[in-house]
Simulated scan of single mutants.
Amino acid sequence: MKIAFILFDQMTTLDFVGFYDAVTRLKTMGFNENLSWDLCGTKDEINDDRGITVKIQEVSPDLS
């Protein structure tokens, strides 16, 4: 299973990290060893609502 986490400017990082932690544990705890993910967005870096900058792995990827 491949997951695209789509990040955008002015997001709330706390909301993202809570979801990211729970979902990625499916792999780290051995429930789904084929799980992979990318951080996606429309530009190389995004800034959250408090000024934290996140580097994006895949810029405007084809998500089909």
Rank of each mutant, 00 (worst) to 15 (best):
N32K: 02
K27A: 05
K27I: 01
L63I: 10
L39Y: 08
G30C: 00
M29A: 00
L26W: 01
T42I: 14
D44T: 12
E33K: 07
K27M: 00
W37C: 02
D21C: 08
E45K: 15
T24H: 03
T28C: 01
V59C: 12
K27R: 13
V23M: 05
L14N: 12
I6H: 10
N32A: 00
N47P: 03
I52P: 01
G51F: 09
F5L: 07
D48F: 02
L63S: 08
T12Q: 08
F5I: 05
G41D: 09
I6R: 09
L63F: 10
D48K: 02
V17F: 02
T24P: 01
E45T: 14
D48V: 03
M1P: 06
K2V: 10
I52L: 15
D44W: 05
N34T: 09
S36I: 07
G18P: 01
A22N: 10
D15G: 10
I46E: 06
F19W: 09
P61F: 13
T24Q: 02
Q57W: 09
N47Q: 15
A4C: 10
F31G: 00
K27N: 05
G18D: 06
T12A: 11
V59I: 15
L39E: 03
V59R: 11
D21F: 06
E58N: 15
D49T: 07
R50F: 11
D38C: 12
T13P: 03
